[in-house]
Design a protein around this nucleic acid. Structure first.
Lengths: 153, 153
DNA sequence: GGTGAAAGTTTTTCTCT
DNA sequence: AGAGAAAAACTTTCACC
């Protein structure tokens, strides 16, 4: 775990909220001048504390009306079976997130599709037949009331 | 839904993957010069197709070891009860995502905490006593095998 | 680890097509 | 809408504290 001071934390909080803020503005907000601020950002990127930057897009305006959470149980929980399933999921573009959980459900997936039809097609032809799958329960997202990716800095 | 051509889609795909790419580089990748490329990006921001930019941070390096999915059922599904619950959740920084679902479970929440103790504290003192909550089932994330926020452009 | 100034890029505006 | 040139702003390096 990286050694981070208060300035680093504020800097990361700013970048998490506003990933394209300019370095001068960022420096100003955290009380530094531009060069040391940039050095800190670069070093946080190097260290992998900052994993990358992403534009957040409006799925519905792009024609992706359907967001689904799928709870998946596997037939075997052997490490080999788990990683085979994970690798398979990495190859499916509709599957945006794969989280391995404790308890009854082995994985929760976040799936984004254009419409119900293409989701059903995906479910029956791609997800259910994936290696080791015992059961899949899906829930449609009616609406997303809060979406603040990241950590509560 | 916005009128988007192929150039817009490629541009959005690039920004979703690499949110801090420079405008000149972005222009080059989509086959434009810088000025029209910037005009397109600004207009997509204006239209809300681009909702914002975020740095993706490594939660564990920042001392947030615990990611939990909580499945919440409410006592009432009247719209007023739903929005009251949602508004309450918006005020809790540990709760990063709130998705309303169809079926048995009313909401799925993504919660990020520093450790098990602070999560338990949060669960018993903040989440379970929230207005209208009938039941909460939580699952700890063992590992996240895929995390590609956004849409499959 | 921070500062100030200078050099190199990039963003942004303007004008033209 | 897109292109090229010019102005403004930002990033990045350097020498110094």
């Amino acid at each position: 775990m990286a050694n981070l001071d208060q300035i680093d934390r504020r800097l990361l909080a700013e970048l998490q909220n506003e990933g394209r803020v300019t370095n001068v503005e960022l420096a100003h907000r955290v009380g530094l001048t531009a060069p040391p601020c940039l050095r800190r950002v670069r070093s946080l990127e190097e260290a992998g504390v900052i994993r990358g930057y992403h534009a957040e897009l409006d799925a519905s305006q792009l024609g992706f009306a359907i967001t689904v959470f799928a709870m998946v149980s596997l037939k075997s929980q052997a490490e080999e079976a788990l990683t085979e399933f994970e690798n398979h999921m990495r190859g499916l573009p509709e599957v945006r997130e794969v989280h391995m959980l404790n308890g009854e459900i082995d994985f929760i997936l976040k799936i984004v599709s254009r419409d119900l039809q293409s989701f059903q097609e995906f479910l029956t032809s791609k997800l259910t037949p994936a290696p080791n799958v015992a059961s899949v329960k899906t829930s449609l997202t009616i609406r997303t009331a809060k979406y603040q990716p990241g950590v509560p800095l």
